[in-house]
Design a protein around this nucleic acid. Structure first.
Lengths: 144, 144
DNA sequence: TGTTTTGTATCAGTAAATGTTACAAACAAG
DNA sequence: CTTGTTTGTAACATTTACTGATACAAAACA
């Protein structure tokens, strides 16, 4: 099952908000830039709001703002806010408990999974939204 | 994020082969331990064979053996052999090229993706199939 | 009071992984 | 050489998660 693009779109959303500074941005406007439906954007904004990365306001003249400064939002915050699962999945069906390998493989894989997740976190923590904005403005896409 | 269990099952398969040493193992036997259909196993065995990690033989008294020693197979080899894509996906629809963010975000995300993939590789290279076997036999699942 | 926008439910569409059946090709054993 | 076994692979059904779309209530403002 493929990976999903929620992390990529979430970064896109936050970059839009960052670029607009104090001005509230509407989900419809973000949706145009991302090239998707506004509901998709609002769903992600809800997740980002739960993680206290953005603040939304309903009603006429409503919209969304960043809840923190761009230097205070790192990419691991974003990842944790929207990522659903782990890097790789474990067995869909429980392995045979009658086999010495089947009986013990799950805990090994689980341990490995945690190791990898930690490595990803360490990588993501290194970059903030400020770095992303800089990379976008440089036109080269190179982070850090 | 990605959610297929091919990497997990591939490690399971290789652990089974390792445990059986010189004796060829049939896909049917592995399937029982993994608790899935034998064709699912054979599909993965094909990928592992392309990566020169195993050798299979058709016919009566056929089956599969490891192609290398357990110390010579690291988990990144396995990951590269069976993993299809990246940790997270990029935009499904191309972002608006009329928006300064939309126009440049893809290259930033692509760069980030490569960084993360590299971090995963570095983590996986640290472990060999021998470590997996040890972890299984210890009963604790702790690697390394 | 009326309009705008978020928040959310619901359902349809899409894409990828997994499960299953079927069968040809290779190989060993008798 | 024939028979039986096992891999390799194609084809299709099933499952699952993500994405897209419509609809509408709740909130906020003018």
């Amino acid at each position: 099952m493929a990976s999903n693009s929620q992390f990529a779109v979430a970064i896109h959303i936050l970059a839009m908000l960052a670029k607009n500074g104090d001005q509230k941005v509407k989900s419809e406007c973000i949706a145009e830039s991302v090239n998707t439906n506004a509901v998709v954007i609002r769903r992600l904004l809800c997740s980002l709001q739960e993680a206290d990365l953005v603040v939304s306001q309903k009603g006429a003249s409503g919209g969304t703002l960043l809840a923190k400064k761009v230097e205070e939002i790192n990419l691991n915050d974003v990842y944790q806010a929207v990522s659903t699962g782990e890097v790789f999945s474990l067995h869909r069906q429980k392995p045979s408990q009658d086999c010495p390998v089947g009986k013990n493989i799950e805990s090994v894989l689980c341990h490995l999974q945690k190791n990898i997740d930690r490595a990803i976190e360490e990588q993501l923590v290194r970059y903030t939204l400020a770095d992303v904005i800089r990379a976008i403005e440089s036109g080269k896409g190179k982070l850090g």
